[in-house]
Amino acid sequence: MVKSGTIILNTAARFLMPLQLMFSVFLLLRGHDEPGGGFIAGLVAAGGFTLYLLAFGVRATKQVLRMVDPRDLIGVGLLLGMVSVVPAWFMDQPFLTAQWWTIPVIDFKASTPLIFDIGVYLAVLGSVIGMVMALMEVDKDEP
């Protein structure tokens, strides 16, 4: 199934993937105020990787991912989601109450919802590329 694609696909994938990744981070960070957010950003990033997978195959994609296994991304994502509930405990507030901190120098709003959204992002990204990668790996093994 997965042969290397055409030159156009290859070139497009090579350029689009980093762009899509950057765009996804942009979508993630602005998601609280404008359309975007963890789910959408995760899907955009997963789309970028899927394109790359289709163009260059599983091995090349794994090289791009280096040490990161998609399954680890799922785990880290879920962990971040769980961790974001903890600060409210220390503030003696009900479970999952959002906490906000302003980082002074760059005037950036850090918050538990943001941590949570990053968790969503990683879980979605990990799930989708995990599934696609597993499918393509199996395809490769079969005639």
């Binding site: 998601g31 609280h32 105020d33 404008e34 359309p35 975007g36 957010g37 963890g38 789910f39 994502g77 879920l78 989601g81 769980m82 974001s84 509930v85 479970f95 999952l96 959002a98 906000w100 709003k109 918050s111 919802p113 943001l114 949570f116 959204d117 968790g119 969503v120 879980a123 979605v124």
Partner: peptide
């Protein structure tokens, strides 16, 4: 502190649901 109400619902008001969905 969020202007995208859908996202605020997802990560704040109903975050527990979203956690389950994750």
């Amino acid at each position: 502190y969020g202007r995208n109400i859908v996202n605020v619902i997802l990560v704040d008001y109903r975050a527990l649901d979203t956690l389950g969905e994750m």
